[in-house]
Simulated scan of single mutants.
Amino acid sequence: MRLLPYAPAAPPQVRANPSPSRKSRQPPCALPFPDALRAAAAAAAVSLSLLSGDAVGAWAVTERPPELCREEDASIKDEVRTKVVATNEQLVEEAWEVVNEGFLPDAGSRPWSQEMWMKKKQDILQSSIRSRSRAHDIIQKMLANLGDPYTRFLSPSEFSKMSKYDMTGIGLNLREIPDDNGSSKLMVLGLILDGPAHSAGVRQGDELLSINGTDVMGKSAFDVSTMLQGPKDTFVTIKVKHGNCGPVESMKVQRQLVARTPIFYRLEKKENEDSSVGYIHIKEFNAVAKKDLVSALRRLQNSGASYFVLDLRDNLGGLVQAGIEIAKLFLNKGDTVIYTTGRDRQVQNTIVAERGPLVTTPLMVCILW
Rank of each mutant, 00 (worst) to 15 (best):
C29N: 10
G243Y: 01
I351R: 02
F264Q: 04
I263L: 08
S160P: 00
R266C: 02
E273V: 01
I280R: 03
L209D: 04
G205M: 06
N17L: 15
P65Q: 05
R81L: 11
S220E: 13
F33D: 11
Q256D: 14
I263V: 14
V99W: 14
F235K: 12
E79L: 05
P12K: 08
R132E: 05
G323M: 04
M1G: 01
S183T: 08
S19H: 04
Q346N: 12
M364W: 03
R298L: 15
I138P: 01
R345C: 04
V92C: 15
L193H: 07
N332D: 12
R313V: 05
N145T: 05
K77T: 07
R130H: 09
G278W: 03
Y279C: 05
P156V: 10
R299V: 09
Q348K: 14
V216D: 13
R81A: 13
T82E: 15
V56A: 14
L319I: 01
R2T: 07
W369N: 13
G318W: 00
N332W: 04
P111C: 09
D274V: 01
I177P: 02
M364K: 07
S113W: 08
E71R: 14
L143S: 02
C245I: 03
T340K: 06
K291T: 10
Q13D: 07
G147T: 02
C69D: 14
P149C: 09
T361F: 11
T151F: 05
L208M: 03
G190D: 12
A200V: 03
P105F: 15
